[in-house]
Design a binder for these strands. Structure first.
Length: 571
RNA sequence: GGGCCUGUAGCUCAAUUGGUCAGAGCAGAGCGCUCAUAACGCUUUGGUUGGGGGUUCAAGUCCCUCCGGGCCUACCA
């Protein structure tokens, strides 16, 4: 048994996320966590909301609520949605927690003591009407290059020229539209990542088994231009973690907070501490996951994220950890994903284009989404959601191949033998062949999941389901029943055991349906099969079951068309 | 502008990292079965691997070039 620490990238707090946010971190990490638990490993699976930063403040203002209240409510909402999708976090924390405040301030103090923090004085745009400094992208104006009138302060969307907000002609606040802007001098703390660049590069180079996507992004940042740049880790905002050296004030930094990307990854650790608090345990309980001097030496730590998160997880956060000089656990493997597009374009929160997580759960059970998203997860390149593909995949895989198998076996048994596992007959060559085939398939399935190759794992699982249909067709218990009822009984007994087998193996991907299958068989739980032959003999003759309802109703053409129209845009 | 990824059957993806006639699922066609959610099984059509050039005994894989798609470029997160 090993100990596996799993973190999913933190969803940002400013509203309900669309499916793209699920597919690249939360779902694959959940499949992995469920699988590893099923294999008997000790798992700590952590996620949290990422609550700080300008967008959170703006979203709260739009909702007409104090930001703390807004975040608390949105956390509840996101938690409920995560539960709805069956995400099995050991703890779903908040980056605004007391634990994260203390830990973030602690890390800053350690970095400062190590000489890795320097003060930088910067000129920033201040909006008098908004009463706040504006990040570059929140300053709009006319592009000096092409004349586009809605260019942003970081880059002109029209001509793609990189800009400085002070370059803009007639600059205005993107928040209020106010032109009452001024340049103000402000002091910020920078993390001296450049000092650690050599260590970081050596560390990245040692990770030869990481996805290409992960290492290529990391190396790009390490080597581009003048190499890894120092990074500002503080902001002039109200909502956030106050800049302090541990418990002590930080002279000159009064009224400032840490940058959201500094405190967000630290929340992985803090959320584990929140978990210990919530379950009434002491610090040792979470430290044994995170401190290599306190028991985390044998932990394998895996992170899941979309590609946009990779620089912060390969460089900034490791710089924080390494720079602290303390024995915190560094990530062992980073599984990164590309983007999921929607019907030929991007999912768009602002345009209401695509399916949002709450809407997804309204229209279909979680397992439909889990299955399709994971069997089409963007592992090697961006992938695309279309309603046609979604309908075809779900109907064929879940309804026809798996659901119908459960249906045909249980209904046939009920009509011929009644609702208990039938007695009589013995295994023949046919059953032994299936056991041999499934043993090979199971090994491939496990290998894919061990390697976090989600598409491959899904394909193997599907192939395992198909074996059941092939077996039934060949064994034809409906024909055997007429001449040799004992043989038919043996086939049905074997097939009912296959349902149990499928429930166990499918649970990482479709936990709700798997639970229904077990429940129909009158079981609360079932162990992962270490031996296929034994697993397929687990249900004895005489064991009662209940013929389940249709496991997966098919998506009709009418539904598909209605949804395609509803989610085309304009939420 | 710079960097990275990507282009394989109508669709979605594989191909042990340079090594048998480039494979699977879906869709299409034919046959079979009748237990089942008109479900299942078997067989089968379909590819000059985006175009062109090069290296090699051997290229989907490496190099050059052109064309298309995408991402990143450090204050959105």
């Amino acid at each position: 048994m090993s100990r596996i620490l799993i973190t999913s990238a933190l969803p940002y707090i400013n509203g309900i996320k669309h499916l793209g946010n699920l597919v690249g971190s939360q779902l694959p990490s959940d499949v992995y966590a469920r699988y590893m638990r099923a294999r008997g490993h000790e798992v700590m699976y952590i996620c949290a909301t990422d609550e700080h930063g300008t967008p959170a403040e703006i979203a709260a203002a739009k909702a007409g609520k104090p930001v703390a209240e807004y975040c608390a409510e949105m956390w509840q909402t996101q938690k409920a949605i995560a539960d709805g999708f069956g995400l099995s976090f050991d703890h779903f924390g908040r980056s605004s927690s007391r634990r994260n405040h203390r830990l973030t301030q602690h890390f800053a103090a350690r970095l400062d003591a190590a000489g890795l923090i320097r003060e930088v004085s910067e000129k920033m745009i201040y909006s008098n009407a908004d009463g706040r400094f504006l990040p570059d992208r929140y300053v709009e104006g006319t592009c000096p290059n092409c004349g586009y009138d809605s260019a942003r302060g970081d880059q002109c969307e029209n001509c793609t020229k990189q800009l400085d907000p002070t370059d803009l002609i007639d600059p205005r606040s993107a928040i209020s539209g106010s032109t009452d802007l001024e340049v103000r001098e402000t002091k910020h703390l920078f993390l001296c990542q450049s000092v650690l660049a050599g260590q970081l590069e050596a560390w990245i180079d040692s990770k030869t088994d990481w996805p290409l996507l992960t290492t290529s992004i990391a190396k790009k940042w390490l080597r581009d231009g003048d190499g890894l740049q120092d990074r500002g880790i503080t902001r002039d905002l109200d909502w956030g973690i106050p800049v302090q050296k541990g418990d002590a004030p930080w002279p000159g930094m009064e009224g400032k907070v840490f940058y959201v990307w500094f405190d967000a990854p630290i929340e992985y650790i803090a959320a584990t501490a929140e978990w210990a608090d919530a379950t009434g345990q002491d610090d040792g309980a979470w430290e044994r996951w995170w401190r290599t001097d306190k028991g985390a030496g044998d932990v394998r730590y895996v992170q899941f994220m979309g590609k946009d998160n990779v620089p912060f997880h390969t460089l900034s956060f490791p710089a924080t950890i390494i720079g602290s000089g303390e024995p915190w656990k560094l990530v062992d493997y980073i599984k990164s994903f590309n983007y999921l597009n929607y019907q030929g374009g991007q999912f768009s929160t602002s345009k209401g284009r695509g399916v949002f997580q709450d809407q997804a759960l309204e229209i279909l059970p979680a397992d439909y989404w889990r299955w399709w998203l994971m069997s089409n997860v963007p592992e090697s390149s961006d992938s695309e959601f279309t309603w046609e593909n979604f309908q075809a995949g779900v109907n064929k895989d879940l309804a026809d191949v798996l659901g119908n198998f459960v249906s045909r076996v249980t209904k046939f048994c009920r009509s011929r033998f009644g609702e208990q596992v039938p007695e009589g007959g013995d295994w023949t060559e046919a059953e032994r062949m299936v056991v041999a085939g499934l043993t090979t398939r199971l090994a491939a399935y496990q290998a894919a999941l061990d390697a976090m190759e989600m598409r491959k794992a899904a394909a193997e699982l599907r192939a395992i389901w198909v074996e059941g249909n092939e077996y039934l067709q060949a064994a034809a218990p409906w024909a055997a029943f007429k001449t040799d009822p004992g043989r038919a009984a043996a086939v049905v007994r074997f097939a009912l055991n296959l349902i149990r087998f499928y429930a166990v193996l499918s649970a990482p991907f479709i936990p709700h349906a798997a639970a229904q299958m077990l429940q129909a068989l009158g079981l609360d739980a079932a162990d992962w099969p270490e031996d296929v032959e034994a697993a397929l003999s687990a249900l004895p003759a005489g064991h009662g079951f209940a013929t389940p309802d249709v496991l997966f109703a098919k998506i009709t053409d009418e539904q598909r068309e209605a949804w395609a129209a509803r989610f085309a845009g304009g939420r």
